[in-house]
Structure formats: structure tokens, C-alpha cells
Amino acid sequence: MLAQVVRCKPLRTVRAPLPRVLSTFAILRQAHVLQLHHRHLSTTLTLFLPRDRHPTHLHNLLTNKYGFCPSCEAPYLLALPICAECGNIGVLPPRVNYFDLFELEKDPRRGAFDLDEKILKQMYLGMQKICHPDAWSTKSEEERKRAEDISSILNTAYSTLLTPLSRAQYILSQKGIDLMETDSLGQDHSEFLAQVLETRELLEGPLNFQELEAIRTRNDDRATYTVERLSQLFREGNWEQAREDAITLRYWQGIEDAVKERLSE
């Protein structure tokens, strides 16, 4: 097993301080830089893994968690079926768990909801580089198509995990809890709905820029509070209440969209 891992070198882990240009992101100081050389694409990928995920990634590599290339039997370096050695490209199942795909903690009780958006972005960009159309333009149509499909799944996965609302909805849907189409809020939520309606009505009326910003800030505060609550609820594994709070967040998002629409006028 180890012999196969050795085959995937040059795999270097860099524990040195981060490049200066990145140090503006304070959060990245908490990350490890992992460089993977894609011989086939002649590129070196730089991935940023959260400090506590870094050993996991190495462990995943050593235990060949990602499986092997069916063509040359080299282990895959990431959760993508693209061989860094021979360039063989497989099919990524569309229902792959998005947290697994990006090397993120996937257990909501252990903070999957609280993911670091900057690290997510770095992983996303690194992985998109691997299946970028330019890298596959000289390949067969079949291979190009596969790379495109993987790229499209990555896009969906990224935008799903990026915002707290869609992330919460995704975690809930993985638990079999959906914000059902047919559900409606009624009497028990009248106070909340009145609050939403009041803000929406306010947004219909004449407002100057300052007033709009004030509404926006108030809405941001409410949304921040809801996200904090959601974080807590996910850690507790309180799915039903988390669903309620995700709905609340959906409404704050609606208000934010309405504010943006007004601002663009």
C-alpha cells in the first residue's frame, strides 16, 4: 500500500509560513499548505487545508481512501476521479457528498456548518484548475465531456456550500429533512410573518439610501443571529429546530434580495 503512495510523488507538504500575499487572510494562518503535483497536467496545485484536516488528508492518501486509477493503479490524490499520473479521467457521481468532495468536515455535530469559506474557495479553485476545459482541450471528446461534468458538479457543490442558507438546507436534506414545497407557515408564526411583512412593506415605500442601509443592517443583524443559532443547533443535532431556523434565514435572504433590488434601481 505504501509503495503505491510513494508512486504518487512528488507530493510535498509545506509547513513553512504562508506566502506573504496570502497573509492578508488571517484565517489562512490556521491552514496548512498542501502542494500536489499533477504531472499529467504539468501543474502544481496548492491546496489550503484547515489545520485539523491536514492530517486527515494525509491519512486519506495513505489509506487510499480515494481509490485508484483504473488505468495505471496510482492512488487518486483528491476526491476527483482524475489521475495525476496518467491523466485517466473517470466519472464523478453527481450525488457525491459535497463536504467530502472538498475535504471538509461533514458531520454537522462537529461543525460542518461552520466551514471556513476561504478554505472552501481555495479548494474549489484548485480542483477547478484540474478539470478546466483548457487542460482538456486536446483530449478526446469523451474526456472533455467528463471534465466538463466534473467541473459542473464542482460549481454546484461550491455554490451550495458557500452561503449559510444553502449550506443549512443541504445539511438538512442530507438528513432527509427538506423545506417542503407544500409546507406553509400559519398561525403559530404570525408574529414572525408580521415582522417580515412589515419590512417588505417598508421596502415598497419611498426610501433614501441611508434608510435602505439601515434596513439592511438591521436585517444583517437578524441574519447573523439566526446563523449563530443554526450553528448551535447543528452542533446539538437538533434537526427540527434547525429546519425552523433555516426557514427564518430564507426570509431574511428574501429581504436582502429585495434591498439589493431597490439599491440597483
Partner: peptide, 22 residues
């Protein structure tokens, strides 16, 4: 951090919301 997330240009993909103007 969240402020940026709520204001992200990426529209939440979940939910069949239809943008009002278009």
C-alpha cells in the same frame, strides 16, 4: 463574515425562488 455571505453574488441555489423582475 456572514454579512458578506448573505450579500454574496451567488444566489442560493436551493429553493425554487424566481427572481421578481426577470
Amino acid at each position: 463574515m456572514f454579512r458578506a455571505a448573505l450579500r454574496s453574488s451567488v444566489r442560493p441555489i436551493a429553493g425554487p425562488s424566481v427572481p421578481r423582475v426577470p
